[in-house]
Design a protein around this nucleic acid. Structure first.
Length: 558
DNA sequence: TTGAATGAAAA
DNA sequence: TTTTCATTCAA
């Protein structure tokens, strides 16, 4: 009996009664995409991240032994002879889209910077790369985040009906042996992986971990290949000698000891002479000459923003919120149609690239909303306007640069969160919204948005509605729900459709009438968003519920 | 290894 | 009903 896999087809929904699309490999999608070859919105990358789209599924992996490339080793179509993790996959298997780290790791391994002699074990390599990953400067990591988003979008286009089904394989295994498959998975205490083993094995693991750390550090120093091998040998010899003379093992010239933790206390600048930066992560210094970047040194390194050297071990908050999450912030975030004080204060609006990525790559009907904005919302039933929940400040957003030139020619986007594109409302104002205390109208008609060579259809409220599965509950399986695992609430933006109020007087508290309708909540609710402090407040649900229907939006072009 | 996504337990 | 978190799976 073949194993059940996440891509397996459930004919006639016999088995799959969750209301979600069947897990069908449907490469013959009817979706069409317009290509705008004259649009190059991403100049922050020396290589257009969308290039990945061309490589991700169609091209074989780079054959260059030294090039640190971003090409992906994904099947154009699922071929029977492809294997993943050494597992045989059947012809219709659809792998998951890679995340940023996976892309980075793949590229890194292909680049063969770490000689086989130094480390050939992929598990260990993963550890090394993981450590190295943590040292990546923010902007470098953002490139991979961007690539991952592109890969995800590409994946979504290619397999619109695909859905991740963790445990499908486990379930199959469960049928074979009585293992802990997803079906009978029980919550347990924290993973017992760590802490296992006796003292000796722990010591061994620590030693291995130190070696990984050392290799990662050498990579950060720019040592690769034979040079890396030699430097590592020296270090290992040093270790051996110190053990011999009874000093015990010391980590990396005795400078520090991780004590099993990745979070050391490296604060000093570590010279970056990385010789193997791939093309797409070689950032033009022009990026910093545009005046767009006002990088704050929040990484604990004493350095100007220009140089962005690495710290051996970042010990700050830079990556506590995944950049990807930031990229996603505008999915359901308010469109800032009013000049925000933040803007007035000169906040750089360069995270528009982030927005571009988000908007381009997002499919509101199936993507999770931000975990950054706001971190939590009042419940739909909240009636207390004092319950204002604070989201992230704009300052936490990506410092990526809006390419000069982008703007005039760039199409307006329906959910441009900072209205960087200067979209004007095509429809009227409050008076156009009869029967409502708060008028609303779409700020712009939905438009397709282009990203590199790709144009993605703008999500529409209609689409949102159309894809809402029946009989859903509690946000689970809901297309725009999001469980962030670590970073607060998914339910914050669940089911929220953007509705923008047209001209309306700012409330005495400074709240701008950005109106949101959670039409999928049990009770529709309307909230106001303030750009003053990025808070959401209020609920005007009861009295407006009956008049605030999606059809109303539809009447305005959604 | 990191990160996205899921699903189910806990709150 | 919402939040948390173990688990799977991308390479």
């Amino acid at each position: 009996m073949p194993a059940i896999r996440e891509h397996d087809i459930y004919p006639n929904d016999v088995e799959d009664d969750d209301g979600m699309p069947p897990l069908v490999d449907n490469p013959n999608t009817s979706m069409s995409f317009t290509f705008f070859t004259d649009m190059t919105p991403i100049t922050a990358f020396s290589v257009d991240p969308t290039a990945l789209c061309e490589n991700a599924w169609d091209n074989p992996a780079s054959t260059s032994p030294v090039e640190f490339t971003d090409s992906l080793d994904y099947p154009a179509t699922q071929t029977a002879d492809r294997v993943s993790h050494g597992k045989k996959r059947d012809a219709s298997y659809i792998p998951r889209p890679p995340n940023a780290f996976i892309l980075f790791r793949s590229s890194f391994i292909r680049s063969q910077q770490v000689p086989e002699k130094v480390e050939g074990n992929h598990s260990t390599l993963s550890k090394i790369i993981g450590k190295y990953w943590k040292t990546l400067p923010r902007e470098e990591r953002e490139v991979w985040e961007a690539k991952a988003l592109v890969a995800q979008a590409e994946h979504r286009k290619r397999y619109p009906d695909w859905r991740f089904r963790p445990g499908a394989n486990a379930l199959a295994k469960l049928k074979v042996k009585d293992g802990p498959g997803i079906a009978n998975r029980k919550r347990s205490t924290q993973s017992t992986k760590k802490g296992r083993g006796n003292a000796e094995s722990k010591k061994k693991n620590k030693s291995k971990d130190e070696r990984c750390s050392m290799i990662a550090d050498l990579l950060v120093e720019g040592k690769t290949g034979a040079e890396l091998e030699s430097a590592l040998r020296n270090w290992e010899n040093g270790i051996s000698r110190e053990v011999e003379v009874g000093k015990g093992a010391v980590g990396r010239e005795g400078e520090h000891d991780h004590e099993g933790s990745d979070e050391g206390n490296w604060g000093g600048v570590f010279p970056t002479t990385n010789h193997f930066q791939m093309e797409s992560v070689q950032f033009s210094q022009d990026l910093y000459h545009t005046g767009h970047v006002t990088q704050v040194n929040t990484d604990g390194c004493d350095h100007p923003a220009m140089s962005q050297p690495r710290c051996k071990t970042p010990h700050d908050d830079r990556f506590k919120v995944p950049l990807t999450a930031m990229f996603k912030r505008s999915l359901s975030a308010p469109a800032r149609r009013f000049a925000s004080p933040s803007d007035a204060l000169g906040h750089n609006r360069n995270d528009s690239l982030t927005s571009n990525l988000t908007d381009v790559l997002s499919d509101t009907a199936s993507s999770p909303p931000s975990v950054c904005t706001p971190s939590a919302f009042p419940s739909e039933q909240c009636e207390d306007p004092s319950v204002a929940v604070y989201g992230d400040s704009m300052g936490h957003l990506s410092p990526l640069v809006l390419p000069s030139g982008l703007g005039d020619d760039y199409p307006a986007r329906w959910n441009d969160p900072y209205n960087l594109l200067g979209a004007q409302s095509p429809v009227g104002s409050l008076s156009d919204c009869p029967g409502l205390s708060y008028g609303h109208s779409p700020s712009v008609s939905p438009v397709d948005v282009s990203f590199g060579n790709y144009t993605f259809p703008s999500p529409t409220l209609a689409a949102l509605t159309a894809t809402k599965p029946e009989n859903i509950s509690a946000g689970l399986d809901y297309p725009v729900s999001y469980d962030t695992q670590c970073y607060s609430s998914y339910s914050a933006l669940k089911g929220w459709a953007d509705g923008q109020c047209a001209s309306f007087n700012t409330s005495p508290e400074g709240f701008v009438p950005q109106v949101f309708v959670n039409q999928y909540a049990s009770t529709s609710a309307i909230y106001e968003w303030s750009p003053l402090d990025d808070t959401i407040r209020g609920s005007h649900a009861p009295q407006l519920h009956n008049t605030f229907e999606s059809s109303y939006f539809n009447g305005f072009g959604f």
